[in-house]
Design a binder for these strands. Structure first.
Length: 690
DNA sequence: AAATGAAACGTTTTT
DNA sequence: CGTTTCATTT
């Protein structure tokens, strides 16, 4: 039984009476074992597995904990435990009452938001404050949704950004229109997942969890908190560490832990103090630094490991890239098993340098990186085509597809989409396959000036027989869509190919076949050919056939990868949503782990190298000055250090010769006692940031 | 309104 | 350094 493996303090927590319980668990004190033990205890007490909900920060963590339980309980028990991230669980719940929902990539929604923003006029008059950019406003709005439960967006803005009071009505108006547009295109995003689930709980979605367990409670935000409140479980078991709260930018409320007892009078507080993970020297270093933060409860760490510790060491380099290559050398010389090594950095910008150096020495490494893969144009367009077939309301996907049709840009693509909707009596899907043949002109007159209600001329329709020489499908050559004057022979063929694919795909059910049908279609070949041409242009703007071949091969390889990703999925919506929910949980490859501090949360490694410990980069001064805080940066340092089990290296470089920058060692290196002359450092810092 | 070429820009962390 | 945005031409 997992319970017999627990020490006394862990066991006390794991077997706590049901009610409101919080466990303060410092790094490396067996938080995961305690949660696993707690679930075992619940199951032993005859609580049904489906009455247990485990909320974690990553899906990986959830899978791991359930996996551990399978060693002690039968599969049909553990598989019925609800476990996952807030978002994944909400998706599952919401799906029951909202079956057609489709998640959309964050960047797409930003584009939508920006398009709404750009229609607004910010009349400045004599006002000296400039309005927030669309991008920034989107982030602020998202932050608002995660943190504010009472006020409307405009009121919240004017309270928190009083100097922008003047614009707050416009800001709120933009957010309102954004919500309406989002709804009309059938989109949903990460925040909506939580908000909609919360709002439907008790009225449309019913849950009956006896026990809700929350891992990484310090990184829970108000929105997530309100979701738990609405579930109102009979028992709640939260585990967290004040010193590891590093998600303030996402609305994580560090006070949730401190105020737990206030919010739930009579709540039991447990604390885990025995550290099993790291050596005494690593822990004392972490402790020294984190003690510079104000404490809300005393930090008391007991080192369990008694083996001879290896002292953490400071690595000083003259130049940034010298640092990367020397560390790569060290990893090669020092480590037998690359899987046990992690290179941790504050900013993703450090990743490329170290990755290149490792590759040079032939050292395998892995990065959390679905991003670049899903950002590739050939992947994007495949998913756009896929999304449009699954969600015909998805106008943005439609526009992206038709931007590849020569002579048709986003404005015309939008007209065509609207026209298809009209032909299909509200459904673009029907408009393509079964257009209303009575409508002669499906195109709307455009408003040239919205305020003055000036109208453009009707779209001047061309003759139906314009493309009779092209051998198009009958359905298409008879379609009034092609009467739009922007259609040329080439784009008419494009539309025809689009129709043919759509006609074929309608009967397809399985994601694999879907990806196959799209990737083998004429239209996808046409698009990828354009992409390959672009990539094969040489200096004289001529296509290098050899390069083109390679580009096409590269695209084919990505298609194969997408096909592999469909494994295990039988439902198109589920597959598409999973690609968005889990896109950056994919880690590819094996070898040395390259991680940001945030991504390293919850993990542990024998050897840890922390890179680029320069003032400005870590702590990241830009962030600390707005929104963040030096305390949060210090917690980040604490998290990074406590990932190490046996050996730890802390590294910085003095200059970046490419960007011609001079660096000063990180504040935390002084606080750790690794560099002594602090006064001199402070003087230099004061000079630099006055 | 689209295509092309030139200039700026910017580099935070996650579900 | 590569992308994104801007300006110019068609």
């Amino acid at each position: 039984m997992p319970l017999s493996l627990l020490n006394e303090e862990q066991l006390n927590a794991a077997t706590a009476e049901s009610g409101r319980n919080i466990v303060i668990a410092s790094a490396g004190t067996g938080k995961t074992s305690t949660i696993v033990g707690r679930i075992a205890h619940l199951l032993n007490s005859n609580i049904a597995p489906q009455e247990i909900l485990l909320l974690t920060f990553t899906n990986k963590a959830a899978t791991e904990m359930v996996e551990r339980l399978t060693h002690f309980f039968p599969n049909d028990v553990t598989s019925r435990i609800e476990a996952g991230t807030f978002h994944a669980i909400c998706y599952k719940l919401l799906k029951r009452h909202h079956p057609g929902l489709l998640l959309k990539q964050q960047t797409e929604l930003k584009t939508l938001f920006r398009s709404i923003y750009e229609k607004r006029e910010f009349k400045k008059l004599a006002y000296k404050v400039t309005e927030y950019s669309a991008n920034y406003l989107y982030d602020v709005y998202s932050f608002y949704q995660n943190t504010e439960l009472e006020l409307g967006f405009g009121d919240w803005m004017s309270e928190n950004y009083p100097e922008h009071d003047f614009f707050c009505d416009i800001y709120e108006d933009i957010s309102n229109e954004y919500e309406i547009m989002k709804e009309s295109y059938g989109y949903i995003n990460f925040n909506d997942l939580l908000i909609k689930t919360r709002d439907l709980l008790r009225t449309d979605i019913f849950v009956n969890f006896k026990e809700v367990l929350v891992d990484e409670y310090q990184d829970t935000n108000s929105l997530q908190g309100s979701l738990i409140d609405k579930m109102d479980p009979s028992s709640l078991f939260c585990v967290g560490d004040y010193d590891q709260s590093i998600f303030a930018f996402n609305g994580a409320n560090i006070n949730l832990i401190g105020s737990f007892s206030k919010k739930f009078p009579g709540a039991k507080v447990f604390s885990l103090k025995k550290n099993y993970r790291s050596t005494a020297l690593i822990l004392s270093l972490a402790d020294r630094v984190i003690n510079f933060n104000d404490r809300i409860y005393p930090k008391e760490l007991i080192v369990v490991r008694k083996d001879e510790p290896i002292s953490p060491s400071l690595l000083e380099f003259k130049e940034l890239f010298e640092q990367y290559s020397k560390i790569s050398d060290m990893i090669k010389a020092n480590s037998s098993n690359y899987e046990d090594v992690a290179v941790i950095f504050r900013n993703n910008s450090s990743a490329d340098g170290i990755e290149a150096s490792l590759r040079e020495l032939g050292i395998p490494c892995k990065r959390k990186g679905g991003k670049s893969f899903f950002d590739a144009k050939e992947v994007k367009i495949l998913f756009d085509m896929y999304s449009f077939f699954v969600n015909p309301k998805d106008m943005m996907a439609f526009i992206h597809i038709f931007e590849y049709a020569k002579g048709i840009g986003s404005a015309t693509a939008k007209d065509i989409f609207e026209a298809l909707k009209r032909l299909g009596r509200g459904s673009a899907y029907e408009g393509i396959l079964h257009p209303d043949t009575h409508i002669r002109n499906p195109f709307e007159q455009r408003k040239v000036n919205f305020q003055l209600a000036l109208f453009d001329d009707f779209v001047h329709l061309e003759s139906e027989s314009k493309f009779s020489h092209l051998e198009l499908d009958d359905k298409i050559s008879n379609s009034s869509i092609l009467k739009h004057p922007k259609f040329t022979d080439e784009s008419a063929r494009f539309f025809n190919d689009f129709y043919l694919l759509y006609k074929k795909i309608v009967r397809i059910k399985k994601p694999v076949s879907m990806v196959e049908a799209i990737s083998e279609s004429k239209i996808y070949k046409y698009i990828t050919d354009i992409l390959a041409d672009q990539r094969a242009l040489d200096r004289n703007k001529k296509i290098n056939e050899e390069v083109k071949e390679r580009a096409l091969l590269n695209i084919k390889r990505k298609v194969v990868l997408i096909k592999e990703l469909t494994k295990g999925y039988t439902d198109n919506q589920r597959f598409l949503n999973a690609m968005i929910l889990g896109s950056n949980e994919l880690t590819k490859g094996e070898g040395v782990n390259l991680l940001t501090v945030h991504a390293s949360k919850g993990l542990e490694f024998k050897d840890v190298y922390i890179l680029d410990l320069m003032d400005g980069r870590f702590p990241n001064r830009k962030l600390a000055n707005k929104g963040g805080s030096i305390d949060e940066e210090r917690r980040l340092f604490y998290v990074a250090v406590t990932r190490a089990k046996d050996r730890l290296w802390l590294s910085y470089a003095k200059v970046d010769k490419v960007k011609k920058l001079r660096f000063y060692p990180s504040l935390f290196l002084y606080e750790a006692g690794l560099i002594k002359n602090r006064e001199e450092h402070q003087r230099l810092l004061d000079e630099k940031y006055k």
